[in-house]
């Protein structure tokens, strides 16, 4: 938790210019009736006046901003409070026009685990998350390192190729991937394995952020190691890897969280075998028109069960996420 405090130490700096600009003391001159002195006196007074009004103005602005922030945070958090409250509603299972349950209880959580395939979904997603996180991280680091540190023939071509094919919408390939995976018996109840293959196989394309990070590590380290006779493999895992902890954790975090949110691929791959879903596909399925009236509150309970661990994990690793996202945005 102490690390988290480092994330955003912005408090010290502020956009406001220091007020000392207005505090420049005029050289004290004896009050006289020369026009110059009079003018000086007047200026001093007016400076003081602006200073005062500036301060009150600042206070008012700050108060307004505080109010705005409170309202904003309320708006941002309201849906999540809503989900939690509705997940405890026992008197009805469909949509209701009110937020506070009339009868509280854990019925929905019990139903979630007993009546739906939620345990399967959760397990599927957990397995996917772990495997995808590992393989994707390895792939991304490999590609990013090669493209960042090695200059070889075809490097530009490879990067352009990935850029161009990254511009096609991924859904285009749904039908082919399904047919393909179906041939290998990796769909429906086994959708888990097909999905892992799909998520990981081309994950090397997401190398941008990691490459941007490697680019910032000084080349003199590599050169020093090469002088000492290290092979490139040794440089990779003995020098670059230990320095890249933030980006490694960021990549792992992203890889792990991916399968929790994807419902398109998961729905498509599992087709109609509901036990093969991941949490996203499963919970979304609970809200289809025919299921909604009976399972709406169960969906809320499922949302809470899924969101809680993910959010905690995310907040713990927040620092790395911020680093990755900011680095990626600035590098473009």
């Amino acid at each position: 938790m102490s690390e988290q405090e480092n994330i955003v130490e912005f408090e010290e700096i502020s956009i406001e210019a220091p007020e000392r600009a207005f505090d420049i003391e005029a050289p004290s001159a004896p009050v006289s009736d020369t026009p110059l002195a009079e003018a000086r006196e007047r200026t001093q007074a007016s400076v003081k006046k602006t200073h005062m009004s500036q301060k009150t103005k600042n206070a008012i602005t700050n108060t307004i901003i505080h109010i705005v922030l409170v309202v904003m945070c309320f708006v941002w958090i309201l849906p999540f409070i809503g989900i939690v409250l509705e997940s405890f509603r026992c008197e009805s299972t469909g949509l209701a026009g009110y937020i506070f349950p009339q009868k509280w209880g854990f019925t929905n959580y019990v139903r979630l685990f007993k009546e739906t395939d939620f345990p399967h979904w959760f397990l599927n997603t957990l397995i996917m998350g772990v495997i995808v996180a590992i393989v994707q991280t390895v792939f991304v680091l490999m590609v990013a390192y090669a493209l960042s540190r090695h200059r070889f023939k075809g490097r530009k071509f490879l990067m352009n190729l990935m850029l161009v094919f990254g511009m096609f919408p991924g859904f285009l390939t749904l039908i082919l991937l399904y047919t393909w995976m179906h041939d290998w018996n990796m769909t429906d109840l086994n959708a888990l394995w097909g999905l892992i293959l799909i998520y990981t196989a081309s994950s090397g394309m997401g190398y941008y952020i990691a490459k941007g990070f490697f680019d910032t590590i000084s080349h003199s380290l590599d050169e020093a190691a090469r002088v000492d006779g290290a092979t490139r493999l040794q440089i990779f895992y003995k020098i670059i890897m230990p320095l890249s902890k933030p980006i490694i954790i960021y990549t792992i975090l992203m890889g792990f969280m991916g399968p929790w949110g994807d419902f398109v691929m998961a729905t498509f791959m599992a087709h109609n075998a509901h036990a093969g879903y991941n949490v996203a596909a499963g919970l979304q399925w609970l809200l289809t028109d025919s299921m909604k009236n009976e399972y709406y509150t169960t969906f809320c309970a499922g949302g809470v069960v899924v969101a809680l661990p993910i959010t905690i994990l995310f907040l713990l690793l927040q620092k790395y996420y911020v680093a990755g996202v900011t680095g990626g945005a600035v590098k473009g």
Binding site: F10, I65, H66
Partner: peptide
């Protein structure tokens, strides 16, 4: 707004907003 000098508990505002990124969008 959050960066502005004189705003209190900046970390709280940020954390609340960031928390909403963590929750999967489908939920």
């Amino acid at each position: 707004m959050i960066n502005k000098k004189g705003i209190r508990v900046k970390k709280v505002w940020r954390t609340i907003l960031v928390m909403t990124i963590a929750i999967p969008q489908f939920i």
